[in-house]
Design a protein around this nucleic acid. Structure first.
Lengths: 256, 256
DNA sequence: CCGACTTTGTGCATACGTTCACAAGCGGTA
DNA sequence: TACCGCTTGTGAACGTATGCACAAAGTCGG
């Protein structure tokens, strides 16, 4: 579905790409990192730091310095050679690119344990994401305020979302309800969804879905545990293996 | 750091790579998807489905069929040409590769809103991840059971983690505490960490960290909202643009 | 004003991940 | 048994992301 992704831009781009055009060209992975840089930079700004080099910033963000510079180059050239970057300047440019200059109204659907936790974050971490609507099926919950916002019934989702101009929907329902809730959000005009339910959502391709999947994360970690155990077996049993290579950390205890 | 990743295996692999060796070669991205396939397959098994083709499974998992087959090929050849895959067989092989044949004891640190929600999941989604320890600094919380597990004081983290053989630590503390908690988990022998705090953790490279970062997710969505708004401007203002290309979905409403 | 030093921005090579396309292999049928 | 249609498994092409290494461009001291 939807054949447009990169329509020959890479090879033939004669005209000057406007500031807007850029956004499309930023790799998804880089966008995620920009958000991290932004947080680190904000922290620095709060502590009165005004300038930073790519080396410092990259260490604080846990990435390679070259990668950081390349990421920043996607949004423009705002550094000073021989000096580094002005913290304030970077912050404002990243905010602009990430669309954080305007507020994004958030709706949370499913006011269970997780929904409560999300609603109580009160606005969202980092701000700029005010929670303006809560929904649940349970009639007993409807009307009760959570984190300052009264819960609405899920049947009112379309009206409420339109009225409050919700731009991001958060799904925190049990798995069976997720797809149906998603459909309703979409028909209410919500184009961005953050999904906590362990379900693969089917959406039209003008809708952006990000998922946060606890089970998957745990299983990835489990995989690494297993891989390590196997490697350890390998080392102790036979293979020549890596041996001593001047690493600092290898006092890795394996329980029998 | 740690220069070992792929040590020339791709080009010269004379010997038969043992079942164990395989694990190392599975791309991280594929591992994440395997976890998704596993869930979809489990659901099918529960509904009595015994066989499935790559086409069906890929649709249910929301990925390309070729990608799915390649992902499955990383773990071995367990399909039947002309027929498809046996659901039970696939489930058990994926479980084996992901290390789900044994339990992974989980500790949750930080019993705030999120910590409560996590503890109350009771075991973890998908099971195989029993929560066996909870920690907090607040003395008022210590001793009180949450989701059936009494909260321990964070100062006891080393002893308790060792005793209960915790293999995965979940950090759900406020940002300032995260790094310190992480350090303590690591020195208690925990090698896998799931971090919910909006902080870049510094760990030795024998420790695997996965992060779940609400703020970053929201900002990525925000970026896409902004990108779309820009594209819409572009289309309506001047550019020749993509125009009519036989797509079904373009009744995309933009609010002014 | 110049030269030494520092740090950015980026072209290029490499590694990684995705997609295509098709041979290989299996079940069913005559 | 021989054929036919279907689906897997994978080699090879493609595209994207990462990391290196260096020219460009700035500051600072003399």
């Amino acid at each position: 579905m939807a054949s447009q992704r990169g329509e020959g831009e890479t090879t033939t781009t004669p005209a000057e790409p406007a500031d807007r055009e850029r956004a499309r060209a930023i790799p998804e992975a880089a966008v995620a990192r920009l958000a991290v840089y932004l947080r680190v930079l904000s922290g620095m700004a709060d502590q009165g730091v005004t300038a930073v080099s790519s080396e410092e910033l990259s260490q604080a963000a846990g990435v390679n310095a070259a990668k950081l510079r390349k990421d920043l180059s996607y949004i423009g050239s705002y550094g000073t050679r021989g000096v580094g970057y002005d913290v304030e300047v970077l912050v404002s440019h990243i905010e602009r690119i990430l669309g954080l200059t305007r507020n994004h109204s958030v709706a949370v659907v499913g006011i269970g344990n997780l929904g409560h936790a999300l609603a109580n974050y009160g606005g969202f971490p980092g701000r700029g994401f005010p929670v303006t609507a809560l929904f649940d099926v349970d009639p007993d919950l409807v009307g009760i305020p959570v984190g300052g916002i009264p819960v609405s019934h899920i049947d009112d989702i379309t009206a409420v979302c339109l009225e409050r101009e919700v731009s991001i929907g958060v799904i925190a329902t049990p798995p069976p309800a997720a797809q149906s809730v998603c459909d309703r959000l979409v028909s209410a005009g919500v184009q961005c969804i953050l999904n906590f339910a362990p379900v693969v959502l089917q959406v039209p391709d003008n809708v952006e879905v990000r998922k946060v999947d606890l089970a998957v994360e745990m299983q990835i970690l489990s995989f690494h545990v297993a891989r390590r155990a196997d490697e350890a077996l390998h080392v102790s049993s036979g293979g020549v293996s890596i041996g001593s290579n001047g690493l600092g950390v290898d006092g890795m205890v394996i329980r029998p």
